[in-house]
Amino acid sequence: MNKNKRQAIYQISTLQALAGGNYYGASTMKQLLAHGDTGLGTFAGVAGELIVIDGYCYRVLGDGSAVEADPAEKTPFATVTFLRPKEPMHLGHQATINDLQDVLTQEVKARGFNDVYIVRLDGRFRRVSARTELEQQEPYKPFAKVLETDERRFTFENIDGSLIGIYIPDYLNGVNTSGWHSHFISADRSKGGHVFGLEMEEGTVIFNKADRFIMDMPHNKQFERGNLTASEDEIKQIEQGTE
Rank of each mutant, 00 (worst) to 15 (best):
A110W: 00
F113C: 13
N114M: 09
N114G: 12
V116Q: 11
I118A: 06
D122W: 11
D122A: 11
G123M: 01
F125Q: 07
R127Q: 05
V128G: 07
V128I: 09
V128E: 14
S129C: 07
S129F: 07
R131Q: 12
R131C: 15
T132Q: 01
T132A: 07
E133D: 02
E135I: 13
Q137H: 11
E138I: 09
E138M: 02
Y140S: 11
K141W: 03
K141P: 00
F143P: 12
K145P: 00
V146G: 00
T149G: 05
T149H: 08
T149V: 04
D150C: 02
R152K: 05
R152P: 01
R153L: 02
R153T: 14
F154M: 12
F154E: 08
F156G: 00
E157G: 14
N158S: 12
I159R: 14
I159Q: 14
D160L: 01
D160M: 04
G161W: 11
I164L: 00
I164C: 00
Y167L: 09
I168M: 07
I168L: 03
P169K: 02
P169F: 04
L172F: 07
L172M: 07
L172Y: 03
N173A: 15
V175H: 14
V175M: 13
N176W: 08
N176E: 10
N176G: 06
T177S: 11
T177R: 09
G179N: 00
H181T: 07
F184D: 10
A187F: 04
A187D: 14
S190I: 03
G193K: 07
V195Y: 01
V195G: 10
F196G: 07
F196P: 12
G197T: 13
G197P: 10
M200N: 09
M200I: 06
E201H: 04
G203V: 08
T204Y: 14
